[in-house]
Design a protein around this nucleic acid. Structure first.
Lengths: 198, 198, 198, 198
DNA sequence: CATGAATGAGTTTTCATTCAT
DNA sequence: CATGAATGAAAACTCATTCAT
């Protein structure tokens, strides 16, 4: 099937794009780079995607979606706050802020500020991630004896903070890999527990 | 004085660079853009700086330094945690994540991953910021009856988290300006207070 | 019949080409444009025609031939000069110089300067048109009491002028649609009548 | 003076563009062609003009303006219709419809249909030409005993026709250089004289 | 007959940098 | 100090054409 070939080529282009955004930065990815990395002729890139930017948007969106959905799924699988938090920090520790995945996420956040399409798609992914984290926080946060509405709002706020912490740590660790992630568990636990409502 | 003019020109170039990194992105700033914005001829850029990158590094470093030092100074001026935290959140709320200053900070973090010089300088600035925040946290955190060494380590961890939260919120708000910053005060206070040590 | 399908496809390609030469200009027509407009896959164009140029030549020649033959036929059907002239001006008025048919004719004239094949074919069509107009002018021009040879030469000259006027008006009206075609009848009648022989 | 150099370079670019539009056609002119013909590096074209199209518009407009103004000026210098007409036909005979100047004019008419800027500028030039021809026709057309308003309208119509004839003859001669221009004087004189008002 | 993926040469355009003035 | 013209390498993108299916 000739159709199959096209699909496979597109997959390789997306894969190459993801790697290269991390390596060279959003604006550092060139048609030739992608083509070479994907093992195809330069013209192929524009045959399958209207522009390099289109390819980068498709690739980064797919990657971010996969990453955040995975993260949310694993977190939700933890029945208790401590376990989830420990697991999450383990994940964060696995990245040093200079690895392709970390850089791709930050590059994508920035690119989204200049590409409305990307902004919309990434926003959707991030909002869904926060919602799932919020739900998880409500489930594991038995100690928060608030009204349902209040509990939801409080969980939402904590989910925003957790997302911000993860993103922010990537930036901090990119600059200073010496940051001790394990030491953050205590304060984070306090932040995520309900006893200190505003 | 001919020296004076050169200084003024350099100042204008740095100012233009700061604005443009925010507007167009680190890699989107061109020689001619800077020159036009600064009101000088294109050749002037390379007369004063060896390369455009050099100019961007100088401009972004100076800006980051000014911003973080200012932030630390204001924070340190608050005698209590709550006041400082409230002030800080007010600052964060003032940025929407899509403003030049926010974008410049993130752009600079990213650029630092590919420019060793910039990495070193920015790292120094950020580490100093965290140190000052840590000191302040120890000062205002009377409720943490730990040993000095333990208190310092705990404050360091919280300073890292606070820096990460600020950076991360910029990213989150850039994507979703609807994030309610005020609602974050409660959980953040819990995070910064000492009662929930690991 | 498989042959039938091929014919139909070719017809659709020619039709698409005619439209697109007018819309996008001779050099603006691309393989993919034609294929899309004709509702076929890109490869089909080169299956039926050796090159895009070949298709354009075939399409534009066929169109020009049809148009000029039609024009000559209608003109010849008029038994008197005034009637024919009025009808012709009505035709010219129907085009505004910016419509696909007008543009296609001019595009084809120009393309013929660089394509010997096209030049030969178009020349034949145009010369035949002028010959038929000349014949008609002799038939309706009873007022010219010249010798046969002289009458033929005079009619030829007037036919050239009439063809030039039609072509030239298309250009003039393309630039300035306000040109009043009806007002041209008087001077044109004078030009076509025989009383003012050289 | 460094400013002088730029002016001279621009002049050479315009000159090269004029020649090349005639030789290769509006869409056949490439950056490299122009640069080579003008004897400059390829980048220079875009240093002085935002795009190749911009250069072509500037060059073709300037050329058309010069040509038509010259034509009108010479025509107006003739005190009688016959003399002017004879001179004009001599000019037309000098072009064979395949020369750069003829092709450039037609190419420009066509390009104007797709470039609003060019359309406006060329329209202005052509309208001015027709106005000047019309004025001349009124001056030399003593035989037209019409009211002033009627005379003006009649002259306008004849000016349109004369412009159309010139443009149209370029097209006809491009296809069939055998067209005898001298033989057209008689009918044209009849067309331009006032005795055959509608 | 028809498809659509792939190619690669060609295009326009961008831009940091150099340099004569 | 400052100018702005010029350079040339590299970018994105276009597209006729080929070809395996």
């Amino acid at each position: 099937m000739i159709r199959e070939q096209g699909r496979e080529t597109r997959r390789r282009l997306l894969e190459a794009a993801v790697t290269l955004i991390g390596e060279a930065g959003w604006n550092g990815v060139t048609t030739r780079m992608v083509a070479e990395r994907a093992g195809v002729a330069p013209g192929v890139v524009h045959y399958h995607y209207a522009s390099v930017t289109d390819l980068l948007v498709a690739a980064s969106c797919a990657f971010a979606e996969r990453l955040l959905d995975e993260l949310a799924r694993h977190l939700a699988a933890h029945p208790d706050l401590d376990g989830g938090l420990t697991w999450l920090l383990g994940q964060v520790a696995a990245y040093d802020g200079a690895d392709p995945a970390s850089l791709l996420m930050t590059e994508t956040y920035l690119a989204a500020q200049r590409l409305p399409d990307l902004h919309g798609r990434l926003r959707g992914t991030v909002v869904r991630f926060r919602r799932e984290v919020s739900t998880w926080l409500q489930v594991v946060g038995r100690e928060a004896p608030e009204t349902d509405a209040g509990a939801a709002a409080a969980a939402d706020a904590r989910a925003v903070l957790l997302a911000a912490v993860v993103d922010g740590l990537v930036l901090q660790r990119g600059l200073d890999p010496g940051v001790d992630v394990a030491a953050l568990a205590g304060p984070l636990r306090a932040m995520l527990r309900g006893e200190n409502a505003p």
